[in-house]
């Protein structure tokens, strides 16, 4: 049942996600700079960026509709709820019960739909091009993500993320072929969904390669800040989802304070390693042409379906 302590723990987790998300982005950028032999911009650079954007005024296109102005907040709100659903620190939090893995995918899709619609709102060539590409990536990545989560759900006989984490954390420590396939698929999907190399490049403004950046080209000031923050949150959510599915050890079971505080250092270490891994992938791989992205994501989808099949056939 919902208790005051539970709500407090939930709020802590949510606040932690919102505050820490830009730090994770900063960490990934820093690792990438090191790997590429550049001098790094500093861990706190994303925060400075956000502060700068918030202070700037908004330059809004003449025919931008209310949709354009509300979308950044809606996207941010959806991703906050998604961050609250994923069991990052503890499994027995009140919001874990109101939405399961399928609802989590739905929330991420809702955020994507709003931002794609906002991209089409002003009616520039770049905006609609970006929106189309984002939706292309989305419709291939979303089912793959759903399949990965289904594999975990079949193992734990539940689509509730909390139950999934609890079940997976208590399994015997051997390599399950289904989870191995699912892990590869999940990595590929996360790269695509977070606008990372090889599908998209977060630091480019070249028209032929942009996806996410093209879509939000028209945004400025506080709206852009909300979108950037939401993008960091998305990376954070995906990272935590990956940790919850594939490295669930250390997450507090139950909603007591002590467990959550103890889970915190574990989360930091796991995120730091995960972020470094992401920057390594980004450094060693090349950006794909946009026409190759469906193949990349199709492979991810296939692997995810294979994961489910393997589970049904071998481990069922």
């Amino acid at each position: 049942m919902i208790s005051a302590a539970g709500i407090a723990a939930q709020l802590t987790e949510l606040a932690l996600a919102v505050v820490l998300a830009p730090l994770l982005t900063g960490w990934v950028n820093q690792c990438r700079a090191w790997l590429q032999n550049r001098s790094a911009p500093g861990l706190l650079q994303p925060y400075r960026m956000l502060a700068k954007l918030f202070q700037k005024e908004v330059a809004l296109a003449h025919n931008a509709s209310p949709m354009f102005r509300t979308a950044p907040y809606l996207v941010f709100g959806c991703l906050c709820v998604a961050a609250a659903i994923v069991p990052t620190l503890g499994t027995d939090l009140p919001l874990n019960a109101v939405a399961d893995a399928i609802a989590l995918v739905g929330l991420l899709a809702l955020a994507r739909m709003f931002i794609a619609l906002a991209g089409m709102d002003v009616g520039t060539a770049f905006g609609s091009l970006g929106a189309r590409r984002e939706m292309l990536v989305g419709f291939l990545a979303e089912p793959a993500l759903l399949m990965v989560l289904f594999t975990a759900s079949l193992i734990s006989h539940s689509t509730s993320l909390a139950t999934i984490v609890e079940t997976l954390a208590h399994r015997e420590l051997v390599i399950y072929p289904s989870m191995a396939f699912a892990g590869i698929a999940f990595t590929m999907v996360s790269l695509a969904e977070n606008a990372r190399i090889p599908v998209d490049n977060p630091s480019t403004h070249l028209e032929l390669t942009m996806i996410h950046e093209a879509m939000v080209l028209e945004y400025s000031g506080r709206h852009l800040a909300m979108i950037e923050w939401a993008a960091s949150l998305k990376l954070f959510v995906y990272s935590c989802m990956g940790l919850a599915l594939f490295f669930p050890w250390g997450v507090a079971e139950g909603g007591d304070w002590l467990g959550i505080v103890l889970a915190l250092p574990g989360l930091f270490v796991k995120l730091a390693i995960g972020g470094a891994g992401l920057s390594l992938i980004e450094t060693v791989s090349a950006k794909l042409r946009i026409f190759r992205a469906p193949e990349f994501l199709g492979t991810a989808f296939l692997l995810a379906v294979l994961a489910m099949l393997v589970h049904v056939l071998l481990e069922g």
Binding site: V98, A99, I102, S160
Partner: peptide
Amino acid sequence: RAAYSPLAVLLMI
């Protein structure tokens, strides 16, 4: 097994 509360999700958003 599975639970979903749309009203809570909407209110949270």
